[in-house]
Simulated scan of single mutants.
Amino acid sequence: MDREEPGGTGCGPQGDPPPPAHGDPPVVVAAVTNAAFEEDPPPYSPPDPKNVHLLYPPFPAGFSLQQMPIVYQPGPGHGVFPPPGIPAVPLPCAANDGQPSTGTSAAGHGQRLPKDYMVESVLVTIFCCLLTGVIALVYAHETRAALGRGDMAQANVASKKAQSLVLFSLLFGLFASTTWVIYVLVVLYL
């Protein structure tokens, strides 16, 4: 009976393969290492929101789920599609000539795209109220980003917030300017 060496696999001392016999070809052993990972790989982290557009590109203008073709492939145990007696016709699809839509939503319901208020936000930031003007700029940028990725709901919400902040900044700036003029006139003439 063969006796196994401690710590080995029984093929030779310390688990080495047996030496080649006299007529056997030489055995070539290659080892590959990954120099990039010398330690454990980094833990999982979700994708960076700033780079999500690289992973999930935005839908093209005029895209809707109603335009997607429906492909049905019956599996085992399923009936025939379309059922007998009903002719196979393509599903209706909205015509898209490749031109970007202007002034209507992607679904084509006659709904207008929300305004981003970027110019107004810049003007009220410079001339009226710095704090609320900068916040209006943030919402104006958020509106543009939502429009770019086709998220109409988020674009509408951000547009309404930007509009409110622009209006507030304008009214606050007018109030502050009027108050300052009155104060100066009162101090000079009294």
Rank of each mutant, 00 (worst) to 15 (best):
F81L: 09
P6R: 15
N156Y: 02
I135L: 13
N96I: 09
P83K: 15
A21W: 01
G62I: 02
V52E: 10
A107N: 08
V186C: 10
H53C: 05
Y72I: 12
G15Q: 07
G10Q: 11
H141Q: 05
E120I: 01
N51W: 02
A61V: 03
R112D: 08
L147P: 02
P20R: 15
P82Y: 05
L171E: 08
S101A: 09
P20F: 07
E39P: 00
S177N: 14
G110H: 03
P13Q: 14
V52C: 03
P46S: 12
V157P: 00
G148R: 06
A145Q: 14
Y117I: 01
F59Y: 04
S101D: 09
L55G: 04
F81K: 07
V122G: 02
E5Y: 14
N96F: 01
G7R: 13
I70N: 06
P18M: 13
Y44I: 10
A36E: 15
P69D: 07
Q66K: 13
G62E: 04
V138C: 05
L54C: 09
Q163G: 06
Q163P: 01
L188M: 07
P58F: 14
P26F: 06
E142T: 04
P82C: 09
P60D: 05
K50P: 00
H141L: 04
T33R: 14
F127G: 05
P43E: 13
L55V: 03
I126M: 11
V71N: 06
V181A: 14
V80N: 08
H109A: 12
V27T: 15
Q111L: 12
N51G: 05
S159A: 15
P114H: 07
V27H: 06
E5T: 07
C93K: 15
S105M: 07
V32W: 04
S105P: 00
A176I: 05
Y72R: 13
P25W: 03
T33C: 13
L55I: 04
A107C: 05
A88M: 09
A94T: 11
P13G: 13
G23M: 12
A107W: 04
E120R: 06
P60C: 02
G173A: 10
V138F: 02
L113T: 13
F59K: 01
P19M: 11
I182W: 04
I182H: 01
C128D: 14
P60R: 03
A35H: 04
P43V: 10
P114N: 10
G15F: 05
G75T: 10
I126N: 13
N156G: 04
T9I: 07
L131Q: 11
G79N: 08
S121A: 15
D2E: 06
F172A: 15
A21Y: 00
P41V: 15
I86A: 07
P47G: 12
N156S: 07
Q111C: 04
E142W: 08
L170P: 00
G12Y: 03
Y117K: 03
D97K: 06
T125G: 01
Y183S: 09
S177K: 07
V122L: 12
P87H: 12
V27W: 01
V89S: 11
P92S: 14
V32G: 09
C11Q: 13
T125H: 05
L188Q: 07
I70F: 05
S121P: 01
V157F: 05
L113Y: 09
L123I: 12
L167W: 01
V122P: 00
K50E: 11
G12K: 10
P58D: 14
